[in-house]
Design a protein around this nucleic acid. Sequence first.
DNA 1: CGGCGCCTTGAAAAGAATCAAGTCTCGTGG
DNA 2: CCACGAGACTTGATTCTTTTCAAGGCGCCG
Lengths: 242, 242
Amino acid sequence: MSTDCNNCPLRKLDAFEEMSASEVSFMERFKTGELEAQPGTEIMAQGQSSTHLFTCLRGMGLRYKTLADGRRQVIGFVLPGDFIGLQAGVMSEMSHSVEASTAMRLCTFNRSELWTLFKSHPARAYDLTRIAATEEVFLGEALAAVGQLDARAKVSWALHRFYTRLTAVKQQTGNTVPLPYRQQDLADAMGLSLVHTNKTLARLREDQIVTLSENQLTVHNPTRLAELAQAEDAPNVKRPLI
Amino acid sequence: MSTDCNNCPLRKLDAFEEMSASEVSFMERFKTGELEAQPGTEIMAQGQSSTHLFTCLRGMGLRYKTLADGRRQVIGFVLPGDFIGLQAGVMSEMSHSVEASTAMRLCTFNRSELWTLFKSHPARAYDLTRIAATEEVFLGEALAAVGQLDARAKVSWALHRFYTRLTAVKQQTGNTVPLPYRQQDLADAMGLSLVHTNKTLARLREDQIVTLSENQLTVHNPTRLAELAQAEDAPNVKRPLI
DNA sequence: CGGCGCCTTGAAAAGAATCAAGTCTCGTGG
DNA sequence: CCACGAGACTTGATTCTTTTCAAGGCGCCG
C-alpha cells in the first residue's frame, strides 16, 4: 500500500536531488505513513497547529489565506514533491490553509520528530531550510507579478509558472498539462475578478497562446507565454525532496 | 568599534528570544565583523551570490526585485534584527536586491561557516529555518494585501505593518516612528502608482488616521488603522536573532 | 541662481470590477 | 427517463477605481 522511500517515484526525477542511502533510510523511519485526500478536503487550516507534516506524492492542491473580510488570496499551488506544513512545524501555527484540488496522496511525518532531524541529520535540516528559502523566492516572484503586471501578464505568469513546474515533475503529455483548478482559483491567485480572468483567458486563446478547457492547459506558443509572463529563466537547479 | 554579541543591544529586547551562553559564544565566533552602509548603498544584488551574510544591527533598508521591463517591486522593509542573505546562503543566488535607506550597521558572517552552524549547532539551524518560515509568512500576508485590498487599505496595511514592527524593536517615540522611505517606495511595495499613493496618504491624513511627513510617521488613530489594514493580530511571539 | 529630487494636485484615459444574464455539464431525484 | 438545480464558464453593458499625463511647488546643494 505505502510507497517505500527507496522506490520513491519522485526522487528519480531530474528535478530532485539525489540522496545517500543513509539519508533514505532515515527518511524511511521519519515517514510515518501515507494519506489519501479527496478533492475538496482541507489538509491544513490557517491558524491551526498540526501534529503532522506532509509531502505531496501525487495530485495537486492549493494554498490560500482567508482575510478578515472573507476575501481569499491563493498563495500558491501544491504539486508533487512539495512539502506541506513547514510553518506548522517550526512555528506555532499555519498562516494559510491547504486544500486538495484533485485526489492527493501524501507522505506523512511526525512534527515531533522534526527536532530529531535537526539534531541528527544536519544535511536534511539544511535541505529544509533550502525548501523554506525556495518558497520565499517563489512568493517574492508572485508578489512582483501581482503587484506590477497587468491582467494579461498576470494570467500568463500564473499559467507559465504552473506549466513549467508541472513539466519539471513530468506530468505533461506533449504541450498540455492537467490543470485541476477553477478560474476562480486563478483569479484569487492573481488578485483579479473572476469575470476579468475569464475574458483574459479568452483573449489568450484567441491569440493562439494557450487554451484552457476541461481541466487541461495547452500551451500553443511557449515563447510568447514566457515573454508575456516576464519569466525570469531559472537556472534549473535541483531541489531537495523531504 | 565592533559590538560584542554578549552586549548585543537587540537581543535584550522583548521581541527576540534569549540565547544560552554557549550559543552567544558561538555567535561571537560566527560573526566576522561589522559593516557601515551609507544610504543608497546596494548591500546585496539580485541574481548575485554573496560570500557574506548580514544581520541588521541599526538602520533601515529595502528589499526589492527588478522585473524584466524595469518595473520594481518592493518585497519588504529591512529593520533592526532582520537577517539578510539567507537565499544567498543556502541557494546559489539572491532573488532580490537589498538597499540601505538610512545609514545601516550590519553584523557580517561568512557564508562558508553556515554549514558549520548546521552541523554543530542544530538549535541555531532550527532558528534559521524559523526565520525563513517567518519571512514566508510575511510575504504571504503581503501577497494577500497587494492582491485583495483596495488602495486605501493597502497603504494602511503597509503603514500598520511598518509601525508595528518598528515599535517591537523600540524605535518609536510616543506614537511616531521614523520612516526613511520615499512615497515611491511605498507605492512600489503595494503595487500602486506614486500619484495614487500620494492622494491616498492625503486622505488618511484628512481623516486623522496617520500623518506622514518629513520622514516621520505619526499614527493618530491606531485602532482605525488596524481596521483598515485588516490586520490579523499576531500572538506577539518572540523571534530568533542570528 | 539653477537644477534636481521629492511631494502635491488637477484632468483625462484606461483598465478592471461589478452587475446581469445566459449556457453547459453533471449528478440527483421524481 | 427527464426535470431540476448546482457549479462552473461566458459574454455584454455599465460603473468606478486607478493609472497616466501634465504641471507646479518646495527644499537642498553645487
